[in-house]
């Protein structure tokens, strides 16, 4: 008898719980429907440095649009744009970006800002100054360990372009390795292996500051002209994906917002307080 009563009670409790859930769900739905959300695919560097974390609340305040992003490699980010999984992409590989627009998948490319790449390694700071060629040649000739991203990301593409520019057969170096991972993981790996690697300055500074273990590598080469790294923002073309709902309005609002003088000034200041130097240099309207 006791068992029966408790079973009936249990069923009642469950019913109440379900009813409570049922009432709660539509309330939650309403609140999400009124807000618009912009989904963006971007590269790990904008996420790792915290730039988007800083911009997101300001964008929400100014436009009422919630920015959501997924940080992946440039290759994947562009693929996500091409398949209509996101509304906008913010990446840094000019050639691939132009291809993306030419294919019709993207509307137009707008340059936003740039940062620069540096070569880090287990040597004294600025061993090679801004002489990129002698730095890369030294790595190749001495068969020094070099860890490449090897993941088809913007940084990886830029690195391959540099080897090519100086006509160095990087693959012939037996100590040339491909990690196939993100920038942060690759820096940690290079530090572990006392190897060289090419990184963007933003990820490097934040990694050096935030990592639990001191990073013993130093910047061995910086400031060369071909180490500049241009970011572009492209809205995904809504006409390219007829069956998918692309939030083109929000994407355009974001492009206009990030290229505005006010936000460009914010980008120029970003990181100065924390690292003593800016991580990104705004240049909307111009290009590298």
């Amino acid at each position: 008898m006791k068992k029966k009563i408790s079973a009936v009670l249990l069923i009642f409790v469950l019913c109440f719980a379900m009813a409570a859930c049922g009432q709660y769900v539509p309330a939650a739905d309403e609140s999400t429907v009124t807000d618009t959300t912009l989904t963006m695919a971007t590269t790990t560097s904008t996420d790792n440095t915290g730039l988007l974390d800083c911009l997101q609340p300001l964008f929400l305040e100014d436009t009422g649009i919630t920015l959501e992003w997924t940080a992946v490699g440039t290759g994947e980010a562009i693929a996500m744009g091409a398949s209509g999984d996101v509304d906008i992409i913010l990446v840094h590989a000019k050639a691939s970006e132009e291809e993306f627009v030419a294919s019709g998948a993207g509307v137009e490319r707008f340059p936003v800002m740039y940062n620069d790449y540096i070569i880090v390694g287990p040597e004294a700071e600025n061993t090679y100054g801004d002489d990129l060629e002698s730095c890369l040649k030294a790595i190749y000739d001495g068969q020094l360990p070099f860890i490449s991203r090897g993941d088809d990301s913007g940084t990886h593409k830029a690195e391959l372009k540099l080897w090519k520019a100086f006509e160095i057969d990087y693959a012939a170096n037996p100590e040339y390795m491909e990690s196939g991972q993100g920038m942060g993981a690759t820096i940690t790996m290079a530090d572990e292996q006392q190897a060289y690697c090419m990184t963007d300055r933003g990820t490097w500074l934040s990694q050096k500051k935030n990592a639990d273990m001191d990073i013993e590598l130093e910047i061995v080469c910086q400031g060369a002209k071909n180490l500049l790294n241009q970011y572009g923002v492209i809205a995904v073309n809504p006409e390219y994906h007829e069956s998918i709902d692309i939030n083109n309005e929000a994407a355009n609002a974001f492009i206009e917002w990030i290229c505005s003088e006010k936000v460009q000034a914010l980008i120029a200041e970003f990181g100065v307080e924390e690292y003593g130097e800016p991580l990104f240099f705004p240049n909307a309207g111009t290009d590298n």
Binding site: V72, G73, G75, E76, I78, A79, M80, G150, D151, D152, M177, E178, S179, G180, Q181
Partner: peptide
């Protein structure tokens, strides 16, 4: 690491990240 410690599963995860 390509050719040294890349397994089939990590290769798949890399391919996915390349789209």
């Amino acid at each position: 690491i390509k050719g040294r410690t890349r397994t089939m599963t990590t290769a798949i995860s890399l391919l996915k990240s390349q789209g």
